[in-house]
């Protein structure tokens, strides 16, 4: 149990950054950014390659930058070339497959053997004892969340939020919506890539298919978190994604350990959770309508 909790917390913190990214793109900007899967692997690939070359910290920075570039491509496609936003993400994602292979030296996976990672370096300092991995990933996630909250309250951050909230108002306030969408997607994908980079260093490997479905998992975490913590300001949003991510990983770890749900079915379960959660308002309306009809029918028959 302790082991499950520890794993859930570690992975929860690391993957929370994907949900933070989706909070920015999906919730704040109101764009379903399907670049996510590709940028996660991009972050992982860049991270492992640079860590293998002996630069574990530089690897994180490079992953951030690489993610931002991926986000920029998607943003450019939709703001300047008029590609619909979902398709723009899919196109970039497809192109990233090649970029990711290239980043791993044209191999479908890359591993770190004896090279240092941020985790081994942190372990060497002796802080946290056996819990070093949890502490480091927690610190990174909390720093990322704090940075996100700070950013979203700056002039640029407020402009990005307004773009997703009321585009008419943004244009009337001398803000260029193309710019805010672009910056928003760059930041979001930088966060996703950072998540990929940290996960890859903790697992000491990157895999070309490691990001499949990560966008749906990230959304599931976001929705689980918002159901529990509630929706509101930016700080609450960040607390929600971290909580949601940890809960998701806990469920995942329990399922993995106890085999209540076959592990191969987890993706389907995740997809179901997300579909139902996003469909919830529509389903609620439908149920309310059916009830009303039922009441009317009964009163007519009476």
């Amino acid at each position: 149990m302790l082991f499950i909790t520890q794993t859930a917390l570690e992975l929860g913190f690391m993957y929370a950054m994907v949900s933070m990214a989706l909070f920015l793109s999906y919730r704040v900007l109101d764009i379903a950014d399907l670049t996510t899967d590709g940028s996660f692997v991009l972050g992982a690939a860049v991270s492992v390659t640079l860590a293998a070359a002996g630069h574990p910290f530089l690897a994180l920075l490079a992953a951030l930058l690489a993610g931002a570039c991926a986000g920029f491509v998607t943003a450019f496609l939709q703001t300047k070339l008029g590609v619909p936003s979902i398709l723009a993400g899919i196109i970039t994602n497809t192109g990233l497959y090649t970029a990711n292979l290239m980043a791993m030296g044209w191999k479908s996976n890359a591993s770190l053997l004896k090279q240092d990672t941020i985790f081994t370096l942190f372990k060497a300092t002796g802080i946290g004892g056996d819990w070093y991995e949890l502490i480091l990933s927690g610190v990174i996630a909390l720093l990322a969340a704090a940075a996100m909250v700070f950013f979203l309250n700056t002039r640029l951050g407020l402009s990005i939020r307004a773009t997703g909230d009321n585009r008419d108002m943004v244009r009337a306030s001398s803000i260029n919506p193309n710019l805010t969408v672009s910056v928003g997607l760059c930041v979001a994908n930088a966060f996703t890539a950072l998540a990929g980079a940290v996960v890859a260093q903790s697992q000491k490997s990157a895999d070309i298919n490691g990001g499949t479905g990560i966008v749906v998992v990230g959304l599931a975490c976001l929705i689980i978190g918002e159901t529990i913590v509630g929706r509101g300001g930016m700080t609450r949003g960040m607390i929600a994604v971290i909580a949601g991510s940890i809960i998701y990983r806990f469920i995942y770890a329990v399922a993995l350990k106890t085999k209540i749900v076959p592990i191969d079915c987890l993706k389907a379960l995740t997809a179901l959770i997300v579909a139902l959660a996003i469909a919830a308002p529509t389903i609620k309306n439908w149920v309310a309508l059916q009830r009303r009809k039922g009441v009317e029918r009964r009163s007519r028959n009476a």
Binding site: D165, A172, S173, S174
Partner: peptide, 22 residues
């Protein structure tokens, strides 16, 4: 009246945004 303000942002955030841009 809905066109000129961002509904999910607070009064202060709306004002800040417009003021800092202008």
């Amino acid at each position: 009246p809905m066109r000129g303000t961002a509904p999910h942002m607070t009064i202060e955030e709306n004002l800040t945004l417009v003021y800092m841009h202008a």
